[in-house]
């Protein structure tokens, strides 16, 4: 329950934070600390310094660009996100995810940036953000760059951030009209550690009214099953341009062709996890299709 020796630093601007991160060997960003500090208690990691960005106001903004893009500061807490009525209006999937995360104490501290930068297989936001084509704005000493989700989430506990870089914001493009996002997961107990998670986004033509149309674009992403969010391109292809109909959900069970070894842990075997990934995917597809038809 005790931390190793370390320095605590609290810069006031993102630039200062990035400077510290690149200057100080072994320094890491302390955002909400809801996972990082646990790792330190368990003596799994040994940073020389924690660079606290939680209070940097520039990182705590939630705002919208004119094109409808939702820009979430990296240090925005889950509870701030859940409580943002604008987010709920434009990107309900993001607000819902934030509102359902862990528990009320952790929601008050945990940040979307921390959730993404850790990229733990069980984390909620990476697969959702991958499905939403989010972009990750990153600040280094030589300026900003923007990463796509597949460039950002690169592996188990690994991201595309380079040493000394700081995630400053997550940008979620405006949802096309008629677009539906569904998230399904199987958890330990009623609402604990995720065993398998699937996020499906369906964009379709014919914006108004009810009834069927065609899928214009689709995303299908798994979480918790592999080390990093896994986009199922073949599923997405099979959905694309298809007519939105109740049978659509059953068309895609293409997990078997994925050549990645599923995560294993005490909660279940890899075979079960894989099967559950299919179940969650099917459910998410069904929910997305139903949402599209409605």
């Amino acid at each position: 329950m005790l931390l190793p020796p370390l320095r605590y630093l609290r810069p006031e601007t993102p630039g200062d934070a990035a400077a510290l991160l690149s200057e100080m060997d072994g320094s890491v960003v302390l955002a909400g600390g809801q996972t990082l500090l646990n790792m330190l208690k368990l003596d799994l990691a040994r940073p020389a310094a924690l660079v606290d960005v939680h209070r940097i106001s520039a990182l705590r903004d939630i705002r919208h660009r004119e094109d409808g893009t939702l820009i979430i500061g990296a240090a925005v807490t889950y509870s701030a996100l859940a409580g943002s009525s604008e987010t709920r209006r434009t990107h309900p999937a993001v607000a819902d995810m934030a509102a359902s995360l862990v528990d009320r104490q952790v929601r008050n501290r945990g940040t979307i940036g921390g959730n993404c930068c850790l990229n733990d297989p069980a984390n909620n936001f990476p697969p959702l953000l991958a499905a939403l084509d989010a972009r990750f704005r990153v600040l280094g000493t030589d300026g900003e760059r923007v990463l796509r989700a597949d460039e950002f989430f690169v592996g188990t506990l690994a991201t595309g951030l380079r040493r000394g870089e700081l995630l400053v914001a997550v940008e979620v493009p405006a949802m096309p009209p008629g677009s539906v996002v569904a998230h399904e997961h199987l958890q330990v107990g009623a609402d604990s550690w995720a065993i398998a998670r699937a996020v499906v986004r369906l964009d379709r033509d014919g914006t108004g009214g009810t009834g069927e149309g065609f899928v214009t674009d689709a995303r299908a992403v798994l979480g918790a099953v592999y080390g990093s969010p896994l986009r199922l391109h073949s599923v997405e292809r099979s959905l694309s341009s298809a007519r939105v109909s109740p049978g659509l959900a059953d068309a895609a069970t293409a997990l078997r062709e994925v050549d990645v070894r599923p995560t294993e842990d005490v909660h279940c075997s890899t075979a079960y996890r894989l099967e559950m990934a299919e179940v969650q995917l099917r459910r998410a597809l069904r929910a997305a299709v139903e949402g599209s038809i409605r």
């Binding site: 368990l42 330990v188 107990g189 009623a190 609402d191 604990s192 550690w193 842990d265 005490v266 909660h267």
Partner: peptide, 16 residues
């Protein structure tokens, strides 16, 4: 031991 903490040793919560 692969259940060394309350993540992997899930003690029921009120919500369960």
């Amino acid at each position: 031991l692969v259940a060394g903490n309350f993540y992997d040793y899930h003690a029921a919560t009120a919500y369960d």
